[in-house]
């Protein structure tokens, strides 16, 4: 059950569920009294997302212990996340263990597509919810037998809400397809600001489109000067080697900090 966001209960259950510690309750600090009706101010001073952030930190510790690189893949619906992921898994899992947590409002279609590659995948249906949260990932990760590999978390297709919810991932990877507008990073700046890498997907379609990749990259760097960018095509394989190199670099970082 997602206590943070009140999303309907996910289908994930784990057998030995160790609950992460709740964040410390805030201290009560009565600031002033009101003689007329006893109204008073109570100081709270807590981040509204503190519960989610606490579980995310717990997830991060899990991932570190298991030597797992966790990536949170975010995009609009239809940017090609699942296709890209299928192509990535087809080669990557020849070399190292991979697993996928799939977030969608409904259906297990995406998890089914991933399982066809042979990689273990778990579908989380968020029901009313518009994003995955740290508790859903915590429950799902306990069901996935993954060590010393890569966990891909495919978030709900939504460039707004998932930006605010830390899942404990090492990096957010935002996927922007060339069939969208070049101004996506300016329209949805929080997501691009929170991401370490932007994959520009479906670049095989560029000859048929009036899309300027340089403008997209310039816009992304207006909101996040440090964002890495790799143009890719799951269909032709363009850029997939560079994406793999980026994954190897991110994995090396996990190994080094273990």
């Amino acid at each position: 059950m997602c206590g943070v966001c009140g999303c309907s209960e996910g289908e994930t259950r784990i057998e030995e569920h160790h609950h992460p510690k709740e964040p410390e309750a805030p201290s009560v600090d009565v600031l002033r009294g009101d003689s007329e009706d006893n109204a008073r101010l109570v100081k709270v001073e807590q981040d509204i997302l503190s519960k989610n952030n606490g579980i995310a930190a717990h997830n991060r510790a899990h991932f570190a212990n298991a030597g797992v690189l966790a990536l949170n893949l975010v995009s609009s619906p239809g940017a090609g996340k699942t296709t890209l992921l299928v192509e990535t898994l087809n080669t990557l899992q020849q070399d190292l263990p991979c697993a996928v947590i799939e977030g969608d409002q409904e259906t297990s279609n995406d998890a089914d597509r991933i399982r066809d590659t042979g990689a273990p995948a778990l579908q989380v249906n968020t029901g009313r919810g518009c994003h995955l949260d740290a508790d859903m990932i915590h429950q799902a990760f306990h069901k996935l037998p993954l060590r010393d590999g890569v966990l891909f978390i495919e978030n709900v297709g939504n460039l707004v809400c998932p930006a605010g919810f830390d899942l404990g991932e090492a990096h957010k990877v935002v996927i922007a397809s060339v069939t969208e507008g070049e101004d996506k990073p300016l329209k949805y700046p929080n997501m691009f600001a929170a991401s370490s890498l932007m994959l520009v997907s479906k670049v095989d379609l560029l000859p048929h489109l009036d899309f300027d990749v340089d403008t997209l990259i310039a816009n992304a760097r207006r909101v996040n000067p440090g964002i890495a960018v790799i143009p890719v095509s799951a269909r032709t394989g363009e850029g997939m080697e560079r994406w793999r190199q980026w994954l190897d670099g991110a994995r090396a970082m996990v190994a080094a900090t273990r």
Binding site: C2, G3, V4, C5, G6, C7, A25, P26, V28, A39, V42, V44, Q46, I48, L49, S50, K51, N52, G129, C130, H131, D133, V160, C161, G164, F165
Partner: peptide, 27 residues
């Protein structure tokens, strides 16, 4: 509409506070 989720988080923080402080109502 992740604002619903945030409100849920806020209400949980308020509930923790209420258990400690014992107030009746938040104005």
């Amino acid at each position: 509409m992740h604002e619903m989720a945030l409100c849920q988080g806020m209400l949980e923080l308020i509930d923790v506070q209420r258990q400690k402080d014992g107030f009746e109502r938040v104005r």
